[in-house]
Design a protein around this nucleic acid. Sequence first.
DNA 1: TGTTGGCACTCGATGCTTGAGACTGCTAAA
DNA 2: TTTAGCAGTCTCAAGCATCGAGTGCCAACA
Lengths: 357, 357
Amino acid sequence: MDRTGTGRICDDLTARQRQVLRLLVQEYVASASPVGSGTLLRQGQMGVSSATVRSELALLEELGYLHQPHTSAGRVPTTKGYRYYIERLMDNVELPAPHRMMIGHQFHQIRLNMDQWLQLTAAVLAHTTRSASVVTAPHAAHSRLKHIQLIATHDTLVLMVLVLQDGSVHQEMLAVDEQVTQDRLSVLTSQINDLFRNMTADEIRDEIAHEPPLVTGWPARVVEWFASRMQEVDLRTVDEIYQAGLANVLEQPEFEDVAAFRRLVDMMEQRQRLEVVLARTLTANGVQIIIGGERPIEEVYDVSLVLSPYGIREKASGVLGVVGPTRMPYAHVVSTVRYVARMMDGLIDEVYGEPSA
Amino acid sequence: MDRTGTGRICDDLTARQRQVLRLLVQEYVASASPVGSGTLLRQGQMGVSSATVRSELALLEELGYLHQPHTSAGRVPTTKGYRYYIERLMDNVELPAPHRMMIGHQFHQIRLNMDQWLQLTAAVLAHTTRSASVVTAPHAAHSRLKHIQLIATHDTLVLMVLVLQDGSVHQEMLAVDEQVTQDRLSVLTSQINDLFRNMTADEIRDEIAHEPPLVTGWPARVVEWFASRMQEVDLRTVDEIYQAGLANVLEQPEFEDVAAFRRLVDMMEQRQRLEVVLARTLTANGVQIIIGGERPIEEVYDVSLVLSPYGIREKASGVLGVVGPTRMPYAHVVSTVRYVARMMDGLIDEVYGEPSA
DNA sequence: TGTTGGCACTCGATGCTTGAGACTGCTAAA
DNA sequence: TTTAGCAGTCTCAAGCATCGAGTGCCAACA
């Protein structure tokens, strides 16, 4: 792609401009204050004078990669600048061994309790990146029924516990008008299990629609309830969301401003919006970086997300990642997220992978 | 107790001092800035001059109820002042009807899904009090086994789903060395259910210790695992914790200071410490108010908690409440928390109460 | 004895000015 | 094309005066 031979690589920036942009982003991420030509010279030896750097800076600003808070200040990367840095300039290194060891160590010696795993994953992510983290429970798109259990908790209340192929367990209660006995429920449990085991929600819907009714009276309504609950669980793209490390981001200077922090907290608390962002990553490949001000989160310009899917697509997959300031050490965060996602892949494979038999 | 006849009631403060303290707390809660004698006079008609109020203020400060940030500022209640206000001066009114209606309305039309109920409860508490909220899942101290189900998810992995009398559902996986079949697990499921149903964790421990072993080989280890998991669940005082409304407290002026807000976030994120506080309320009667700087949370002096147990003691009970700034409209918050706790009582009774049969 | 008006005083908040410092853009020379 | 030099811009922190809410004290009074 180097068509001109003058250091113009790819399509737009010269080698020196790229170097300036890279140094500037790195310096800004480290120092959290606007970077001027002087600082840049001091930082990396680039063999030119400050005046040259200044003109490059002016050009980069004109091209939309940088922004100047005010005339006599240094430059700050724009969203476009971060995006360019992340995609073209950042060293995409593997997480250093000590970090890998530390993470690996924390993941050892824990029992096979999915809830604890996910909580731990969120904690580890938050801790190693000094940011907030999100982790969703693994989940399959059209999971099949593994087991249903109906339990009488009261004379007219039925507790349903639903276990799906993807390992998720769901529960809900239903009030029926008549008295129910555990004996009758146990029979019904067997019937439903025998009839619908290994079926998806859609298949169950079809089965019910076409077959003559299995039962009548309140058991029929229980079956109906079971089917609609299956459907509901099936439609959900993101199940439970685990979070950790909100306190970490409070250390960042950009969140001295309470309003800025509020945007981040809102982001974490508004489940709906968060779900949209997470769902996008669920079907993506590899680590996704969403920079504040970009598409799905235009209004939260000082927050970025580094997310990765994990698990086995179509079998049990979720999303995990980091939520932090836009001014974030992306290289480190990306490699951490990637590494933790790979770890989770391993776990999921162990738990849900193809049986050897 | 009015021994002197000069307005000295109970034991310590005169009627006028109490009036001054009450007005001051109310005014401070409303305005968020130190209250002086002038403001106090303007607020409530107390028929005395500012000089008199000043001397009362000076006395109240000497007694430790008030604090003066600096010489030329007004007074601010101390922890002791808040405590006195809450216990002796606050109007303990019922939540006004419009609020009651709004809350009641939000609670209607939701299905019997405990998870959603608790999430909603947290949201409603946070919304009506404009603070953060915490709600724990209902839970019984020594709950009996209702149902256990063992499911083969893999050739050497067993998923156990545990349903207890208190309605809680617990799950965990176990890796066994040998191949397991669902058939064998189903048999084991029936055996365990038949043998241990309606027993507490302790009873199950005893039974296992004294009876000859039910099975040998890996099924024995599954039984052992089941028993230890029961024990573990039984020992837990607080199960899942639901939170909401952290963003609300960011509106409060005292949390302009990031450090202060950090203390609150830490409070909410450090599960261990939060559990200690919540567990204390679990065994208490009625609404508990923990003021920042007081016993279990000495170091978090700008945060207060208003908590209430709910549910049926020994059968299914939890804690719910509000976490907000010490400068909090206690009367309103207390009546909200009380009202919501009563609502939850109703639900719990419906779900776990004595069967009519 | 308790209450009150008066008064001097304190001290944070506010606003203004000023100088230092960081960084810029521009220009003319190399 | 690069660079040294320079004038200009703008923020920030410090210093300073002012304002005013609020205080404590005291003498006079009911």
